[in-house]
Design a protein around this nucleic acid. Sequence first.
DNA 1: TTGAAAGCGCTAACAG
DNA 2: CTGTTAGCGCTTTCAA
Lengths: 349, 349
Amino acid sequence: VSKAGNNERPAATRERLPTVLDVARLAGVSKTTVSDVIREQGSVAATTRARVFEAIETLGYRPNIAARSLKLQRTEVLGVVAGDFFDPFNAEVTAHIEREAAGKGYRVLLATTGDSRIAEASGVQSLLEYRVAALIFVGFSGDARVAELLGTGPPTIFISYESPLGSSVTIDEKKGGDIATTHLVELGHRRIAYLSTTFAGQKQLDRSRISGYRRALRRAGITPSDDLVLRLGGIPGAEREAIVHGLLSRKDRPTAIFASSDITALELMGYVDRIGLDIPDDLSVVGFDNIAVAGLPRISLTTVAQASAQMAKLAVEAAIARLQDPGLPLGTQLIQPELIVRRSTAPPR
Amino acid sequence: VSKAGNNERPAATRERLPTVLDVARLAGVSKTTVSDVIREQGSVAATTRARVFEAIETLGYRPNIAARSLKLQRTEVLGVVAGDFFDPFNAEVTAHIEREAAGKGYRVLLATTGDSRIAEASGVQSLLEYRVAALIFVGFSGDARVAELLGTGPPTIFISYESPLGSSVTIDEKKGGDIATTHLVELGHRRIAYLSTTFAGQKQLDRSRISGYRRALRRAGITPSDDLVLRLGGIPGAEREAIVHGLLSRKDRPTAIFASSDITALELMGYVDRIGLDIPDDLSVVGFDNIAVAGLPRISLTTVAQASAQMAKLAVEAAIARLQDPGLPLGTQLIQPELIVRRSTAPPR
DNA sequence: TTGAAAGCGCTAACAG
DNA sequence: CTGTTAGCGCTTTCAA
């Protein structure tokens, strides 16, 4: 890390930015008129308007949003709380939320939690201090402190979570777990394991997917075994690999694994490759999310697709709808999961 | 998409949130005292303080940041302008920026551009209206309109870009292009192509990496050929594949390709797999960025690493330093690129 | 140790 | 069609 200074003149002490008053003076009108021109409201004579625009231009005037929000008692900012962006699913959803929000004139204020409940709670607290117009959770731990904060908060939308605290946009998680497992059952697998590495917080999500997994097994006449359910959230990487290694070394090792997310499936594939087992010949793997990389030929992961763009769109729309009509009832928008069959699954041999 | 309403009572009309004044009244003190307690300033008697805290608690009071910023004439918000999050490199850097900023008491206000200059300009404009304390660009198009906006703006830090408009945190792009190409040369390759799909905006970055590529070729006594430089930014996917297919169908086809980013390399690998060529036996591929998936066994992409966490940290630190001392000279923090050799490169056969 | 009052930049009555 | 004025919630002199 080297450092190359350059000889730019240091920025002069930051002078005050121009205000409506400055513009008004320069244009020879009152504050109100300037305000009206900016907001395209009231009726201002064309010539006056032109002068105002000119003044704005020459001064480089930019409205101060903080002052406006203070007066208006509302903001056009959406608070987004997301786990982290190392799971591309979160990043993709957040990107779509931002695009969607920007299209509707809203900005996104971000708080990532890095899978820490403390960070989650303090992030939410902070977003609330900014008086965000609405809050969108891209995944939620269910933390009680956060729930309490939300009580007096703005409209809240949960993605991939359901709670009476707000509206939800989620796929049918249980059904997702079911179709993934059913796919494996139909291929002829009997010993099917479940693997999750989602952080300790994401309990609800884990539970729904597992219950779908169990339902599918039972329907096929297979008794679910707790032995085959590995929840490795919060466990460090090396230890995780050892546990998976253990699972795959048993004489009655599973012939298929349903991973609770693509990122988990990818991690698993790494372990499996290192052990020297072949996917799908020795082991079938199904993921969940259908992140972009899952479709790469090298990966070709069979997975349950969540339409991230659609979910983001619905979440933003729901947030704004609740904003415009606070009386709107809460509800859940349930998206249908879709199985994407690729080459990581095959009949057991 | 089905919709399940539930019977929650609709939120009552949003009553005004409590203010310092409400707290003051309840605690039987003045606004000033409340303010002092909150900001842990001045000297307030312990008993008074306790009463104030109690009032805050029962009222569920939360300071209004907009009002505070208006008074203080500053915010603790960092504006982040990023291309999009479909390139995991951007997502990773942004995630690190957010973590780093949060640790220092700053929030991140986001504007993604989706590779559109219009979105970039309007996003910056909007962030400036929010009076962000500093701006961090995760990649920049170099657009002149934006440059103009920045003239009167807050401290600006560019990641992966250099400009007199602000400070920079970037790896030595030219050297990166050089070491990637040199690696291929040393393996014995002579016909080495360059491929980029970065959006039309990212010219500077493309240019630096290409110039490193050319330098390495010349050093090896190879004359760079424009024929082998493919810049496919802005060209739709199907057409791209056809062009790459064309390149790889020539009788004197290249035996190696240096891709300007991992995401481009991944895309390329997909095309190559579909053509039926083997990597690395028929074609060596080097990427740039070292995003998380590049290390997956299935991908095992040789690449030039950019330390995204470090870059984010330096960018946030630089931003805050400039905030605290506006007289600080601009400068570039140059990070050294590092070649990560994996299994996508081998000698030509 | 506490309180009164002014003002940050903006919008919205309400007059003229 | 334009201007005056009050006030959003907060911090900060300056007095008491």
